[in-house]
Design a protein around this nucleic acid. Structure first.
Lengths: 158, 158
DNA sequence: CGTGCTCCTGTGATTAGATAACATATCGTT
DNA sequence: AACGATATGTTATCTAATCACAGGAGCACG
């Protein structure tokens, strides 16, 4: 398991690699990574934390782009629907996906001190949510798994 | 595991037993189950689904009680802080706790067809979220686990 | 007895998050 | 050129949540 958000890394590459990877996938799947969508993805990739739609909108506005709420929400819908970004329900906010390879049911670790969010890839076979749902005869379509707490860096600092 | 929400049961008892149990716990712990708080609990217990704060507020208003948003939010804060109700992040809504006994890290099963929400009690030892967090050195304070899908009753009906 | 403290309530205003509805544009296809 | 599908721009609206401040009930302590 990797937790990019909690470990030092080349963040410039983080952004450019992320955009490049999404571009490639869009070509493969015939998806249009338009200007607005690409810009929102970049904005999300520029931070390892979740950003609210209106916060993203502020950045777009500063760029001189259209800045009405639907602009951000449409881009975010595109990104989340295609797995390029995720919605963090606990925060009503969004974050770029950091595991573009393959289907996943991620677990998010949200640090309440530094606001960073790490996306972890747990073993799907061990999902307790799935196990519980199965035993209740419940057909799962989407799973939300988010933990809020203190990341190792902030714990060390305290 | 029990899934009251998905199974036939005496719902009148569901409400009265729920209120009685919370009353008892409040006495034990020296908590004040005031009029507003008790009423909101009742409202939540009256349905096996999550209700939005403003929806609760509408009921309070119909009762002739104070009906400004903070009234509902304060009662909900009391109820959730003490484990008498839970917030469903996915829905920005609230539901009465159906497992008052003991500390828990519940899993919620949200039916998108009939809107019912079941609270399941998984085996804590198997929590994949905890496992992942531990391996990242992340100190978990709160966990959100919610599955959205179709409940057995609605699946049968379709 | 009354002062101060803590906790709870009431209300108006504001901020944040999300969507509806409708008009316009762009691009590839036929 | 006409069409359909997809994406954009904008206004308005709705839902969710919080702030800020004033007032009240109950209790403890001097």
């Amino acid at each position: 398991m990797t937790d990019q958000a909690f470990e030092p890394h080349d963040h410039g590459a983080c952004i450019s690699d992320g955009v490049a990877a999404v571009e490639r996938i869009c070509v493969e799947r015939g998806l249009q990574l338009t200007k607005a969508r690409a810009r929102v993805l970049e904005i999300l990739l520029s931070e390892h934390r979740a950003m609210g739609a209106y916060e993203i909108l502020d950045v777009l506005r500063a760029d001189g782009l259209a800045s009405q709420p639907p602009v951000a929400y449409r881009a975010l819908e595109f990104l989340t629907k295609n797995g390029f970004a995720h919605r963090i329900e606990r925060l009503n906010a969004f974050i770029a996906c950091s595991h573009l390879d393959g289907a996943h049911a991620p677990v998010f670790l949200i640090c309440r001190v530094c606001n960073s969010v790490a996306e972890a890839q747990p073993d799907p076979a061990r999902s307790e949510v799935d196990r519980v749902a199965r035993s209740a005869g419940f057909a799962v379509e989407r799973v939300v798994r988010e933990a809020e707490g203190v990341c190792p860096n902030c714990a060390r600092a305290a």
